[in-house]
Amino acid sequence: MVSLPLRSQHAPEIGGADITFAPPARPSLLGSEAELRVALGGLSGVDAVGANARVAALGTRSLKQGTKRALLDLAISMIDLTTLEGMDTPGKVRSLCTKALRPDPSDPSVPHVAAVCVYPDLVEMARNFLGDAPVAVASVATAFPSGRASLNVKLADVREAVAAGANEIDMVIDRGAFLTGKLGLVYDEIVAVKEACGSAHLKVILETGELVTLDNVRRASWLSMLAGADFIKTSTGKVPVAATPPVVLVMLEAVRDFAEETGVVVGVKAAGGIRSAKDALKYLVLVNETAGSAWLTPDLYRFGASSLLNDLLMQRAKQRDGHYVRSDRFSGD
């Protein structure tokens, strides 16, 4: 691995409990395209066969009952409950927020989710519905999902969402630029968006289904982290291939290594295609075994999903009641 000009003397113990969440100063920005290419080109490659084998092996871990219950709750608390449709309406956003706050009204012990995720024009509405509740409003921005707009339009998109009360911004990278090797362009755009975010947290969507290779996923992860991402996120959910375990594995390796190199701890969001509690638990095992248990918190790991929540609720109820429950026990929102 090419040594990046940002090594910290105080890298946290990965897997230990004492990670400092106040991020140290970001490393100085990398200058040129060439420097970026050298730095990212120096990352070790990913052998897809080995990565697939690793996730397959971890997929066979079986969890203790108590652990399973705790993890189901944890998974609920990690959800960015999402609606990103052209047909979204105030009514839809209202029911989403209601569900976010109290996923299962019959059981107050069910935690609220981490955030609701909506388009920028619905941020204000969502914030109003949620009130002071500790559920974040996340907004996709930067000409989501394609990212095909000028930088000014993208930045305006971000600023409006933040002004409307978004706590978190889910931006998309310019995949076209990335795939044509214009890494500096992608980098600069993330830096600009980060600045436009102000105090809002930035999640950078790599759209891994369009980057295709795991090598690209690793490079894009590092590029995003170097540029200031608080989270790296797999997908928009708008292309056929969304989050997959090997992709998340590689992103988890990236945040682990980045923390070791720089002391900066970045989160991971797996979005799209995760519908079952069983899959969610497998992802959490992946988090635990790859980045370490320090990442098992909504601060550092999220699921971008909608239908996943109900399956988690069903499994939770099954754990509690000892039998399978019908899906209609939970709201379809």
Partner: peptide
Amino acid sequence: ETSTVWHTVGQ
């Protein structure tokens, strides 16, 4: 001697 080489196949 028969020497057998395995190599992964992936993108």
